[in-house]
Design a protein around this nucleic acid. Sequence first.
DNA 1: ACTGGCACTCTATTAGCGGGAGTGCCAGCA
DNA 2: TGCTGGCACTCCCGCTAATAGAGTGCCAGT
Lengths: 341, 341
Amino acid sequence: MSLDDRKLEVLRAIVEDYVETQEPVGSKALVDRHKLGVSPATVRNDMAVLEEEGYIRQPHTSAGRVPTDAGYRLFVDRLTRIKPLSPAERRAIERFMIGAVDLDDVVHRTVRLLAQLTRQVAVVQYPSLSRSSVRHLELVPISTTRLMLVMITDTGRVEQRLVEMPGPVPDRDVWDLRRRVNEKLSGQRLADTPPLVQRLVDECDEPERRATMACLASVLLETLVERSEERLALAGTANLTRGGVLDFQGTLRPVLEALEEEVILLKLIGDLEPRTTRVRIGDENEIDNLRSASVVSSGYGPGTTIVGGLGVLGPTRMDYPGTIATVRAVARYVGDLLAQN
Amino acid sequence: MSLDDRKLEVLRAIVEDYVETQEPVGSKALVDRHKLGVSPATVRNDMAVLEEEGYIRQPHTSAGRVPTDAGYRLFVDRLTRIKPLSPAERRAIERFMIGAVDLDDVVHRTVRLLAQLTRQVAVVQYPSLSRSSVRHLELVPISTTRLMLVMITDTGRVEQRLVEMPGPVPDRDVWDLRRRVNEKLSGQRLADTPPLVQRLVDECDEPERRATMACLASVLLETLVERSEERLALAGTANLTRGGVLDFQGTLRPVLEALEEEVILLKLIGDLEPRTTRVRIGDENEIDNLRSASVVSSGYGPGTTIVGGLGVLGPTRMDYPGTIATVRAVARYVGDLLAQN
DNA sequence: ACTGGCACTCTATTAGCGGGAGTGCCAGCA
DNA sequence: TGCTGGCACTCCCGCTAATAGAGTGCCAGT
């Protein structure tokens, strides 16, 4: 027994109603609200089948039906009509984003914008270092044996690290280091730098300079490439409390805990494919704490490349079409913004 | 009728028990748990007085007593014996903080440490720009008409801004600008810079350079001094869910909302006096959303100066002595860490 | 293949009823 | 004067029972 058109229509109606009302939906209410052209009894039969197939379930005998994760999945995959953004939303995006002064500002505005538009928790990843190129490296003497290494990427990120030197480094050596490092690394994608950095060390002939360069190199590699520091911004946590304690099966606890872990958040919005919006529903999230949540995420970047991810997290009972549209639009907008640099 | 010693002792007992058990405490339970040397009836009389004076109240007739905000205030002001940190806590602080590689790292570790030790929401302000001095200013050409201005402060903060120039700026001019700006501003406290920056512009004789310098100056003043960008780190939100829904009168909503507003958080941990730990209890917070919360905060910085604030936020029903001790210890530790730079 | 009817199940709500904790008050005692 | 034991009172909490209502599954009829 497969699912004919009407059954799918019934599923859509159930999802839509449940998302809106937050209450299990029964056969009678369904035919009342949606012109399905059949009687409640017929709908009940369809429901029985849908339940059999695992797309809906009843919280208790003789309550209405509620979509399962599989039901939402089917809804998202086959039943979602792309909902164009309202002009109001378009305007909101523009109004929110114009006047951003630097990358920090862009990221913060984006994350708040997302949270506000979707009324959900929003996450935005800073442009990933490994996907950026070096625009400039600066060395600033802090003390005789300490340098501050500042790296600026083409995506506007600025990272700094303190470098402890093996011995005093005179100013002119700093200048020299600075020149050589920039010559070799400027314009290179960060992911490609390791061999270049190694070469830099090898090319030093005087042992002293070699030592300082080695120091610098190790910091560069270790903290900027390997431990490829990803940064995140988060907003809209308060939105978790909408819909009472009903969503998230009683406690926000696990969700809040998950949101505190950068690693987890990165997993949520990582590994994205260009120009697609990914939806992970309930159980599809590998993280146990987020079994009652859904995540809609998308990569962003200039053109079709991806330099980072962004997304929103909410109860599985969420307005998927709207959320997907918004996330996609914002991601595209941010990408264009970056392209302008 | 004033409060004699025993009444104060009763208040202390009530606060301590209530904090521990989360339940209204009655006269019988009190004499059982604390050796007060008097009978329940006597305690009841004392309680009646304490209630009269507004330090405790009963949730319902014939329930036990619960401290009021005023009661906690009295407890904190007069009844708190300073509780020394346990060796375990001391060790935790050290273990947590060693190996911090840069300011970002220090701040993040600190905020997580605070959240973990106090089991509360922790807030840490980055060293305030206005209280820091300029260590170095760097200008990096991004395009012919765009410069990236990078400022490094003595507290380790690195701030960057994009500067849009009125016309193309040749490289040697950039070098010149860079030198002059650094000569004038290095080592100056940021709060003192406005007149100096103005002077920089005045001293330019050629009209072209004057124009670029003016541009630079306006960005410097506007974004770094006036809109003196304060940054914050937050951790431990999940701790709000401890103690069920009982604290915070039912909803986390308002609290979570407040925590999203940087301005509010800054107010909470701002205006601190050196070497003191401030406690704001319930109604003492000006922010309506936080009427059911308490904030323990302290300034930190090298020596007795303050470069930023940190603190924790939790239910009014919190372990004040312990929290105060922890906040103070962490603040001091971070201050010492900064002093080592 | 759809429909109306019907009996059934289960939930949520309400009311009623002790048990128990805690109080306030009072009279007695050091 | 201040503390204590005793006692009646109040109110919450938890339990049970009863009821109303929503929704279902099934069946016979069209």
